[in-house]
């Protein structure tokens, strides 16, 4: 039931016809877009006759890859989140149609509007894409502030579960349990767990967080930011978790000296976020969540590697992530050393 097969395309066209309230839908183009090891994204150009979407529509179809990650949301939940943040003023591709029926293409998917730009982290941090990095960072801080200021009702996002009373304890619990059950020794990761346990800040009121807010997960064109992507890690958390994740060394794509996403120093990003959100950033809390980010990326990298080694998903990118824990371990050792050794 591959998306490239003619019968699958026919079923997809039929689904779109019903969802768009159209008289007829012809699929003009359907091809897989690059990137996305957890999800697959397909460019979908459809000629739609009649209804609210009449005309030639450039769309993106998003569906699960062959195997999934424990922390990743299902497509229905991601669709609900993306609808909600789109309505709330966060710049994302407008999600249009959700299909839960696995009989159409073999797994659930949703369809959103195509947005211009590329998510190429290396070109963005090099200044070849996304315009001036200072302005790009400021815009990203504003988008993040808009997200964190939303106060959606929890029952509108039932797929996210209940907000944790203590987001750091909840996240750390998940990561520590993964490491303990993993069956291989990860001493530096355990060192990070101990530090995080002993330096936990007082819990903040959880807000809706992106969960994977970083360079590589937004689109930019020659002029600047165009859209925030990849909402499959969204959840209730401490807003500083998004800030720490954005600053993690690995997501600077080689522009290591620019602590915030490879774009600007951390302090500049904090200032832009504070101006947009009205909420002050405590650098010690941000650093705490950056250590958590290092530990979390380490666990995700191991999970991705295991998709190859244990579950047989033959992707070289997944396999190479088996060597990613070392970058995270360096961050854990550096960040915890800078933070001092006070118990």
């Amino acid at each position: 039931m591959a998306l490239g097969e003619a019968t699958t395309r026919d079923r997809l066209a039929q689904f779109l016809c019903g969802a768009a309230g159209a008289r007829a839908v012809e699929i003009v183009e359907l091809r897989r877009l690059s990137g996305g090891t957890v999800q697959e994204n397909w460019l979908l150009v459809a000629a739609i006759e009649d209804g609210a979407f009449a005309g030639r529509q450039k769309l993106v179809l998003r569906t699960d890859a062959a195997t999934s990650l424990s922390m990743s949301r299902d497509r229905a939940t991601e669709f609900a989140v993306q609808r909600l943040v789109h309505a709330g003023g966060v710049t994302v591709p407008e999600p249009l149609f959700l299909c839960r029926d696995a009989a159409v293409i073999g797994k659930p998917f949703f369809v959103m509007r195509w947005m211009p730009g590329a998510a190429d982290g290396q070109r963005i941090v090099a200044g070849e894409l996304g315009g001036a990095r200072e302005l790009l960072a400021e815009r990203l801080a504003q988008e993040l502030a808009t997200l964190h200021k939303l106060r959606p009702a929890c029952d509108a996002l039932a797929g996210l579960g209940a907000p944790p009373a203590d987001a750091a304890a909840a996240r750390l619990g998940l990561l520590a349990r993964f490491l303990e059950a993993h069956g291989e020794p990860h001493p530096t990761a355990e060192w990070g767990v101990r530090w995080l346990l002993r330096h936990a800040p007082p819990p903040a009121t959880p807000v809706l967080c992106h969960g994977d807010f970083r360079t590589g997960n937004y689109l930019a064109d020659e002029r600047g930011f165009t859209a925030l992507l990849d909402w499959d890690f969204a959840g209730w958390s401490d807003p500083d978790e998004d800030i720490g994740w954005f600053c993690l060394g690995y997501w600077r794509f080689g522009a290591y000296g620019h602590g915030a996403g490879g774009l600007v120093p951390r302090a500049a990003f904090h200032r832009a976020y504070e101006a947009a959100s009205g909420r002050a950033i405590d650098p010690a809390r941000a650093r705490y969540w950056e250590v958590m980010a290092a530990l979390r990326w380490l666990v995700i990298a191991l999970e991705q590697r295991d998709r190859f080694l244990r579950w047989g998903e033959r992707s070289l990118q997944l396999l190479l992530n088996g060597r990613r824990p070392a970058e995270c371990e360096l961050e854990i050792l550096m960040l915890t050393a800078q933070a001092g050794e006070a118990v």
Partner: peptide, 30 residues
């Protein structure tokens, strides 16, 4: 133990991603 963790990490990175190690500015002193 901290010295040992540093040594293990630097050794792993020198093989898996020496560019990252160089960019991080970590010196042997650490």
């Amino acid at each position: 133990v901290k010295r040992l963790l540093w040594a293990i990490t630097l050794q792993k990175l020198s093989e898996s991603n020496p560019d990252y190690l160089a960019a991080s500015g970590v010196r042997q002193a650490t």
